[in-house]
Design a protein around this nucleic acid. Structure first.
Length: 227
DNA sequence: GCGACAG
DNA sequence: ATCTTGTCGC
């Protein structure tokens, strides 16, 4: 069975004030040091929406590492509980992700989230939030920038430059494929930036997105029948 | 005050 | 994020 403790969402925030307090309190629990064991399974998590955003569909795809073969998956649908507000994405997507994680049979050793980790205004993006709540190593891989600046990036796959915010390195801009828009990698929890970039790179195949998030994204759009 | 702004 | 088929380019 799954050996991850999924916290209950009894007191999920309703407004930005409340959410901000939670971010400022939990941000101190984030660890940027490698605390990973053997990485046999890497999971990708993503969330999609239906019926004019009123329905949330969260998905998790568990792949073997480094073979990247799908061995477990979970899809759940639930009412959308929080609006999309830049800087507060996790409050909209984490509830569904936690519910999806409960359905897993295989326990992932590392999770790659669709969105920022520490590359966030208050250094607590969705990857950090999820990682701290379930105490599992997480990485944030976003398709665009939330905050920060960086120098020009060579067009070849594998090139990378630091993402800087307020004078500090908060992530890495990584070219996952030659001549395509880069990915923005930042740590979520229990992992160092160098290690995080390493795992993301090793989850790439022939596409722009890591295989983990590609599969999770596909599942989050899949049509499902509920009971 | 104005503009930017993960998904 | 979502609504949507074929099509142009490396």
């Amino acid at each position: 069975m799954l050996n991850i403790n999924i916290p209950s969402l009894s007191s999920w925030p309703t407004d930005i004030e409340e959410a901000t307090l939670i971010q400022q309190q939990l941000r101190h629990q984030v660890s940027d040091e490698d605390q990973l064991g053997d990485i046999r399974y890497v999971a990708g998590v993503d969330v999609g929406f239906k019926d004019n955003y009123t329905i949330t569909q969260a998905a998790v795809a568990v792949l073997t590492f480094p073979e990247l073969e799908l061995v477990d998956k979970a899809i759940v649908t639930l009412p959308t509980c929080f609006p999309y507000i830049p800087g507060f994405l996790s409050f909209r997507e984490v509830p569904g992700i936690l519910k999806a994680l409960e359905k897993l049979t295989i326990t992932p050793n590392l999770m790659i989230c669709d969105g920022q980790g520490i590359a966030h205004p208050r250094r607590f993006g969705i990857a950090c939030h999820l990682g701290v709540l379930i105490d599992v190593p997480t990485i944030g891989v976003a398709k665009s920038i939330l905050v920060g600046k960086h120098s020009d990036l060579p067009p070849e796959k594998g090139s990378r430059v630091d993402l800087i915010y307020k004078g500090k390195t908060i992530g890495v801009v990584l070219r996952s494929r030659t001549n395509v828009k880069p990915l923005y990698v930042s740590i979520g929890h229990k992992i160092s930036l160098t290690t995080a970039v390493d795992y993301v790179f090793n989850c790439l195949t022939k596409y722009r997105l890591p295989e983990t998030t590609r599969l999770a994204d596909k599942l989050s759009r899949e049509k499902v029948d509920n009971l």
